[in-house]
């Protein structure tokens, strides 16, 4: 892919420039969140681990996949942290407060619920768009992921260095 010097970002690939495998890998970044649920482990930390593994395995394949892996992982981090916070709070209420909760807890629980729902819906949309070869920007996380995946950097591992293997001198 060519660098776009004017903007400082690499050019975005268009759907027809992407192979099916690339599109499927990008879609997989979003679908990893369902993998652990499918495995019968609906724990937030398992989702996160699955996403991190997927990220390390696939993000170096192409910038398009890297963008989707980043977007999925970045959006999952706060979701998992908030879910873990909710579990911790709930555990405290169970242990120390005999299930007595207040508006503060209810407010937090509802907020986490809405955040999860939004994350769930956006992940589906992101996965479908990724399969079609399109980029879909989540609020805040989309911009962050784009910057990480497409910004022109020195020492970029995806920029091909001088070929190591050379033909013999004839």
């Amino acid at each position: 892919m060519e660098e776009t010097v004017e903007t400082g970002y690499h050019a975005l690939p268009q759907p027809d420039e992407l192979g099916t495998r690339e599109k499927e890998d990008a879609m997989g970044a979003y679908l990893m969140m369902f993998a652990s649920i499918g495995a019968g482990l609906p724990l937030p930390i398992i989702n996160l681990i699955a996403s991190v593994i997927y990220y390390f395995v696939n993000s170096k394949k192409s910038r398009y996949i890297k963008f989707h892996c980043h977007q999925s992982l970045f959006s999952q981090l706060p979701t998992s942290l908030m879910n873990a916070g909710l579990m911790f709070w709930l555990f405290q209420i169970f242990i120390y407060d005999n299930w007595e909760y207040n508006n503060n807890f209810v407010g937090y629980a509802v907020m986490v619920g809405v955040f999860n729902l939004a994350y769930f819906v956006l992940s589906i949309v992101g996965a479908v768009k990724a399969r079609k070869g399109q980029v879909y920007y989540f609020l805040f996380f989309g911009r962050l992921a784009y910057s990480h995946a497409y910004k022109v950097r020195e020492n970029d591992s995806m920029v091909k260095s001088a070929p190591v293997n050379q033909p013999p001198s004839m």
Partner: peptide, 21 residues
């Protein structure tokens, strides 16, 4: 713009929490 996005993202969720609190 990223900061603005973060702000926009945080507002509705904090608002939900505060509204119920």
């Amino acid at each position: 713009k990223t900061l603005r996005d973060l702000f926009l993202l945080a507002i509705p969720f904090v608002a939900i929490w505060a509204l119920i609190y």
